[in-house]
Amino acid sequence: MRKIVATVLVLYLGLFIFMGLVSLPAFGSFESKHVAEYYLQKGVFHTGSANLVNAIVWDFRGYDTLGEETVLFTAAMGVFLVVRRKEYGRYRKKRV
């Protein structure tokens, strides 16, 4: 049962990825009807910031950047977990 559910989910996800791939422009040909052109045309009007990279990163894609920061914090926590003092664990075991 779990295998069937997993297979269906994977196929569903694959369908979405395939649909996204099909709708991309052909290799080497840039069509200007995509969102990049809109950012260049209307970015300053919508955000008011002169640096368009920053406007895209923080205003148009704020959720994305928030997740990026969370990924950075997760990396710090991972380093903290992997490279921590080993004596600390022993000390805790003795005390508890």
């Binding site: 920053n54 923080w58 704020g62 920061e69």
Partner: peptide, 12 residues
């Protein structure tokens, strides 16, 4: 200028 962008930069 830039609306919230300086504040967002500062908090980030």
């Amino acid at each position: 200028s830039g609306g919230f962008t300086p504040l967002l930069n500062f908090a980030g």
